[in-house]
Structures are given as structure tokens and as C-alpha cells.
Design a protein around this nucleic acid. Structure first.
Lengths: 355, 355
DNA sequence: CTGAAAGCGCTTACAG
DNA sequence: CTGAAAGCGCTTACAG
């Protein structure tokens, strides 16, 4: 407390000051009731005098686990991933684990390097988003024998049955497309379009579109490839997507967007073009971002409990690390949230003046 | 590659397979040109055969640094912090550092525990948001002798001159309030209000309001305490803030919000109350979230380069760790972004029918 | 209840 | 250019 110490206090410094061995200090810290209360008090005293904080690297080396979990998301610059990470972090933190976080910006080979970097920090487990990853990524994780949990996706029934997939805590992405299609069909639409993120290396995006397309097909409607436009995530992507779809003849009256950011982009572009939503055009998004309920006329969307996804994924990891047993797959419930009027749009109204 | 190894490969396994010592393997990894190309090739071969990934804990212990940096933000569930973290992460990652991330949800004593948890992971540096932290937090970091960099805030001139503050990479939060005041004054407003996050334990929020108030005072206008309403961050906070301000008599015609989320909440509430913005009410936010430019009629705001903040903070940390020299304070430029009409509002129009 | 000692998996002077 | 050996700061059987 007087003059600053020359170097950070070590367990040996504490032991010396408390007049015990380092073994006893170590026990006082990790197994308090193995040491006599009086000794414990002296040690506590010494620790606070010296401002001792144990060295995690040494601890991790001795214990063989670091109490650290690594998560890799496409980007943090998307409320949806940020929220899930928040759920992860809070849950892990409450159990004494820390979260090492990285983003790969939708670049699968960057992801492999990030995984390597995390493994080199001796994480106890790794969390990835989706099933689509470089073979090398899976190989690296397998060879390192760390726990791997997949978030967001749900493995196909066959794969899951064959036990071929890592434990997955996710959504039924195909069902998302199906809910959107059912809703839009129920409004009486017959001409559909979709704005999606890039589907390459993104099983979530792919399955959402597939689910949408299949459900339409079951009702005798088609979704031609030309009616599915892939755009970068972001408002501008959504705006460009709508512009593209409106150039089609006949143009769609109902649009399913892979997420709310794209859907909001569509909505803003429609407003700019004075297209009445939902009067003349129906838009369905996905995620239920807070903003979706705030804007006028409000955005119909599919609620994905992403914070809870993070929580559940964290719990799955914690159980795995505690039991040694891989956790079961989990599929989180999703829900269609209808906002705005649900009246069948008047198709005639849809004659925008394009810039 | 054949049957899965019983346990993760160690440096000794690589050495044995490549018929060299562990010292040589270590050198091949960290100082390649200290080892003969032929040996290097055998080692490379062995590494890939075994899928060897060095153990970071052991490495950190031997080297005395973990190549890991810890950051603590109030929450990730706010685009502004998520973006900065993204900037941090990307920059650190490019220099071979990993980011350990935690949130404290605006709870200062939770923050102290989080700091302890990070220190116990032997991070090389810690990044905090703002100057307001528990004394214990500062003490813990000082005793651990890890680098500390403050983000978002800029220390007051006196403190900085006295060298009392940790290196800070931030904004001039007082100037933010000043820019907002100057803008609103230039529109001819005379009655002002403010919606702020909680100012307790939040120097950014406090300084923004102070800057706003001081600038108004310099122009003969006052901002009574009753005209500053503190609300939790979130759209609902902004909405409640506007409701509160509209109950005042006379009610303000110009509102400064501590950030864009609150400002958007105000704007949505105004829309719900059919108050014309910016015709009857001027709102200025802060951050320039992407959504601010998308909504109609658009939100006047103050652009804070938060991604760059993360980048710069990461660079400051990296330099510090490389040089041993604490980096200088840095103040990032901010900019008023005017959106919507700038006409003086017709005060008579502001007679909302409150629910 | 406590201590002496070995060991966790690396790195790096030191010697050759 | 390479190897034997000590050391980084903890933890934990083992012995008392």
C-alpha cells in the first residue's frame, strides 16, 4: 500500500507474508474449508495487502483448463449477434468463465485462422455460428479436443440421427421460411420475392429461403431464382434488393427478407418510392429487432430469441465441460409477429416511379 | 490422421516425430530463421501430421504475456459499443492479439469483479469505457501492473496535465453538448430540454449535458434541472423522456438526447403523438447510428466515429505493450450531421394531445 | 490441517 | 544451427 511494488505479487509473496506454504495459499483460494480459519484469515490479509491476483496462465497450465470459452461470430456489428454474445457473456461470467470473442466478417478461411488463434489461447470450448465451416476448421477443433457447440442452426434430421454433428443450439431455419410463406399466402399473395444475405457459406440464409420456397411450392406457387436477390446485410442491401425485385415483371407483392435489417432496408426504400406498406406491398422480416416494433407502420417479422440463444449455448458448454458429456441438440421456439394491417394488398397500387 | 490421438499433441510429440529437441520446435515456431530449412520442413511436417496447436497457457507463462487484451463495456446490446468492440477486435486480431470481452450493465461494482476476472486470465491490458470507475477497480489494475486505456472519454485538461489519468482515447463529450446547443440556438429555439442516460457513474452522459447547459447559458438561455430527464437507454426511455418533457409548461421546442437510441425513442413518440419533427419540435441525437439516416424525416445527430475509436484504442494498447511507453491521450473528431429541415419550428404547432 | 516436491507445456539463455 | 536444463507461477497427490 505504501510504495508501489517492483513487480506484481506472486503466490510466494503471499505465502511468505502469511507465514505459510504456497500450497496452503493455493488451498485457501480454491478449497477454503481445507484450511484452518485462522490461517485463512492471515492469508486473506496478506492477499489484500499485496493486491495479489493469481496468474491465470499458470493456473490454466496446472489445471489443464483455462475457464475461457471462445466464440466466433460473423460480425458484432449486427444487433442480432451482439445480443447473442451478450447472452453468452453474461451466462459464462456468472459461472466463472470468460469469453474470448472474434469475428470473421463472413470469410470462412479467416475463420480457420481465428479458430487457431483461439485454440492457441487454450480455450476450453469453441462456439461457432451455423454449420457451414471450412473442413480445416472442424479438423483443427477435433485435433485439439476442445468442446464445440454450434449456434443458430439446427442439424438436419439425418445428420443428427447419425450423430455426425456437433451439439447445436439453434433455430429451425427452414421453419422460418415456412412461417413467412404461410403468412404471406394467408394474405392472398400470389407473386413472391425474397431478399437474402449471401447463401454461400451460410446455411441459415440458405435454409430460410429453401423453407420459404418449399412452402410456396406446396401451395402451388413458385419462387423463381430471379425472385431471390442476395445482398450484403445492411439497410443498403435491403434497399437495393427491393429495387431489384421491383424491376421484375410482374413484380412481387410479397417479400420475405432473411433478416430485419434487410427488411427494414426494403421498407425504407418502399417509403422513399411512396409504395404503401403493407397496403401495396407486404414485407416479412426475421429477428424481431427492437426497432421493428417502433417504426411506422411496424414490421411483420419472425421473433428469434437471440439473447436466450446465447444463454442456452453457454449453458450447454458449461454442462459439457462439467459432465464431460456432450449436450443434446436444442431447438429454440420461434414466433411470427404480425404488425400493420393484414389486408390483402391492392396490387394495382404497386406502380412505383423508379428513380 | 489415422486413429484419433489419445490426447492433444504436445511440443514433445512434435519433437519426437521430427527427431529434434523441443527447443528446436519452439524456435521453428517463433523464430523460423534460427533453424535450418531442412529441419524446419521436418518440423512443419510433424506439426501438421499431429495437428499440433501450441498451448497458450504454457506459452503465456513462459513468456510473461498472454497476447490477450480484456475490454469491459457497459453492454454489447447497443450498436455503439458493439461497433467499437468490433474495431478493437479486428485491430487486435491483426496483430496476433485476442480480445476477452465483458459487460457490466452499468453496475460499477460488477465491473470491479469483471476486472478481477480478466486479471485472473492474465490479460496484458485492460480497456474500460469512461472515467467513472470504482476506486477498487483502479486499485486492482494498478496493483496488477497491466496497461489500462480508457475509451470514450477525454480527461479534463487539469487532470491530463497532472498526468493523473490513464491514457484516454475518446471524444470531447462536453463539445458534443455544445454542438447540439449551437445548432438548436441557431434554429432560434429558446426553450430546451434534454433526455439523458443516467448520469451517475457515467461521465460521458454528465459532460454532454454540462456542455449543453453551459453553451445555452453563454447565450442567455437556461436549462433547468426539471428539463433534463434521465432515462434508461432504449427506445422506451426516449419515449418516456419526451412524454415527461411535454408535460412541462412551457414545454421545450428543442431536445438534446444523450444518444441516438434515446433520440429515436423521442422521435417515435413524437410521431405517435402526431407532433411534427422537425417542424414543431427539433431533436438532436448523438452517435449517428446507421438507422439515423434511414428513418424519415431523418435524425440530426452528432457523428461519433466509434469503430475508429475501437481501432485507435487497440493501436494505443499495442504500442504500449510493444514500447513500454504509455500512449498519449487522443481525442477523435466529431461532427454535427444535420438532417431534416432546419427551419425555426412554429411553436404554436406544439400542442400535442397527450394520451 | 499443512508443507516439500513434482509437474503442467512452453521458452530461452547457455554451451557446444 | 541445435540440445540439455532451468524456469515461468500455479496445483495437488503424498506424507506427516
Amino acid at each position: 500500500m505504501s510504495n508501489p511494488p517492483l513487480s506484481r505479487a506472486r503466490i510466494g509473496d503471499v505465502a511468505r507474508l502469511a507465514e505459510v506454504s504456497t500450497a496452503t495459499v493455493s488451498r485457501a483460494l480454491s478449497n477454503p474449508d481445507m484450511v484452518k480459519p485462522g490461517t485463512r484469515a492471515r492469508i486473506r490479509e496478506a492477499i489484500s495487502t499485496l493486491g495479489y491476483v493469481p496468474d491465470g496462465a499458470a493456473r490454466a497450465l496446472a489445471l489443464g483448463r483455462a475457464r475461457t470459452v471462445g466464440a466466433i461470430v460473423p460480425t458484432l456489428d449486427n444487433a442480432i449477434f451482439a445480443r447473442a454474445v451478450q447472452g453468452l457473456q453474461t451466462t459464462l461470467s456468472n459461472s466463472g468463465y470468460q469469453l474470448l470473442i472474434s469475428a470473421h466478417e463472413y470469410n470462412l478461411s479467416a475463420e480457420t485462422e481465428v479458430v487457431r488463434a483461439l485454440l492457441e489461447r487454450s480455450v476450453d470450448a469453441i462456439l461457432l455460428v451455423g454449420q457451414d465451416h471450412a473442413a480445416q476448421t472442424y479438423e483443427l477443433i477435433r485435433a485439439s479436443q476442445v468442446a464445440l457447440v454450434i449456434m443458430w442452426s439446427h442439424p438436419s434430421a439425418e445428420l443428427a440421427a447419425a450423430g455426425e454433428t456437433p451439439p447445436s443450439i439453434g433455430f429451425d431455419n427452414r421453419l422460418i421460411g415456412q412461417l413467412a410463406a404461410d403468412h404471406l399466402l394467408s394474405l392472398g399473395h400470389t407473386r413472391f420475392g425474397a431478399v437474402s444475405g449471401f447463401t454461400r457459406h451460410n446455411d441459415r440464409a440458405r435454409e430460410r429461403i429453401e423453407g420459404f420456397r418449399e412452402t410456396l411450392a406446396q401451395h402451388g406457387c413458385t419462387l423463381p431464382d430471379a425472385c431471390v436477390i442476395e445482398q450484403p446485410f445492411g439497410f443498403e442491401g435491403g434497399r437495393a434488393g427491393l429495387q431489384h425485385l421491383l424491376k421484375l415483371r410482374p413484380s412481387p407483392t410479397a417479400i420475405f427478407c432473411g433478416n430485419d435489417v434487410l427488411a427494414l432496408g426494403c421498407l425504407f426504400e418502399a417509403q422513399a418510392l411512396s409504395i404503401d406498406v403493407p397496403g401495396a406491398l407486404s414485407i416479412v422480416g426475421c429477428d424481431n429487432l427492437p426497432i421493428a416494433s417502433q417504426i411506422m407502420p411496424g414490421l411483420t417479422t419472425i421473433l428469434l430469441p437471440t439473447y436466450e440463444l446465447g444463454e442456452r449455448a453457454a449453458r450447454a458448454v458449461l454442462h459439457w465441460l462439467a459432465d464431460g458429456e456432450p449436450p443434446p441438440h436444442e431447438r429454440l421456439p420461434i414466433e411470427l409477429i404480425v404488425r400493420g394491417t393484414t389486408a390483402r394488398p391492392c396490387e394495382a397500387a404497386l406502380q412505383p416511379t423508379l428513380a
